[in-house]
Design a binder for these strands. Structure first.
Ligand SMILES: [Mn+2]
Ligand SMILES: [Mn+2]
Ligand SMILES: [Zn+2]
Ligand SMILES: [Zn+2]
Lengths: 151, 151
DNA sequence: GGCGGTTTTGATACCAAGTATCACTTTAGG
DNA sequence: CCTAAAGTGATACTTGGTATCAAAACCGCC
């Protein structure tokens, strides 16, 4: 929803990949997913698409920068549509929903680290865990396989 | 090496766990490991100890705060002895060696995020990837299964 | 529309990093 | 030494993902 499907198509085609029927199905499912979906969730929601294809498509979209891969606090991987530019993620410890942020003073983190460490960072990962506003009041919901999201 | 084995024993016993023969063997292996070891590496280095026990022991040491678990850039998990206090990790993208840092301006990160997000962070993970000084010059070494370390 | 080369797909098998079970062994303590 | 509790390890299972490879889809060209 939050990303133009046509732009994903362009991303694919501009990089020598085809926008096939099957990829369209997967991408539609991803676009309809909540932030913080699992690969297995996409797979089980699409009985017509093979497991390998779902994982391959997600990997491709990661390479193209269309998706972000993040880790829940327990390490379990989740995906969400990539915001443009460098950013990080806030992840709900209960429902696994993901939101982006970039407004903090992390832009100067890299140079600070460079001087502190005497080496150039070539990348970093920052994930912040919190209880999202939807989850704050509801003590019932538990994070389940596939990533439980709010109704 | 960098941590007192006796203190690990105390940690265990103070928390109602036994310092068994087997745990001693695993902990010795871990203490002798370089920073950034893999569970499987410990397992295969100890033919007398069962796989489940290696993983269980590592899990226990994580719970006790004796070990840190970090992720390589590709997501593969590695472990290292925990420094005391809140800190983060610098990970070599080539050899997987891990060092700690805490001196950056990340202490004020949490409150900044709290106000930026309107929610309290309950935790965060920051991992910085770099090429360690040992790896900087050597174009040969490749990161292999189990975590290739410097000789 | 049909051809043919390239890409993609999906079933299957496999791998990596663990966890659940459960009978057996250790251990601490009396 | 006996016993109850804790720990161990073989085995099977799970989750997340990749390698293979024959079959299917795609694309440009005629
Ligand atoms: Mn993102
Ligand atoms: Mn550490
Ligand atoms: Zn939530
Ligand atoms: Zn290195």
């Amino acid at each position: 929803m939050l990303v133009s499907l046509d732009s994903v198509r362009e991303q694919l085609e501009n990089n020598g990949h085809r926008y096939t029927q099957t990829r369209g199905v997967v991408i539609d499912a991803i676009a309809a997913s909540s932030h913080g979906f699992s690969a297995d969730g996409v797979y089980t929601s699409l009985p017509t698409v093979g497991r390998a294809t779902v994982y391959r498509t997600i990997k491709l979209l990661l390479q193209l920068g269309v998706l972000c891969k993040v880790a829940l606090q327990n390490g379990s991987p989740r995906y969400s549509m990539a915001a443009s530019g460098h950013h990080h993620h806030v992840i709900c410890i209960r429902c696994g929903s993901i939101s982006d942020f970039s407004q903090c003073n992390l832009d100067d983190l890299a140079p600070r680290l460079a001087s502190a460490l005497g080496r150039e960072p070539v990348g970093h990962r920052l994930e912040v865990y919190t209880l999202c506003s939807e989850c704050e009041g509801s003590p019932e919901v538990t994070l389940v396989r596939g990533g439980q999201q709010h109704a």
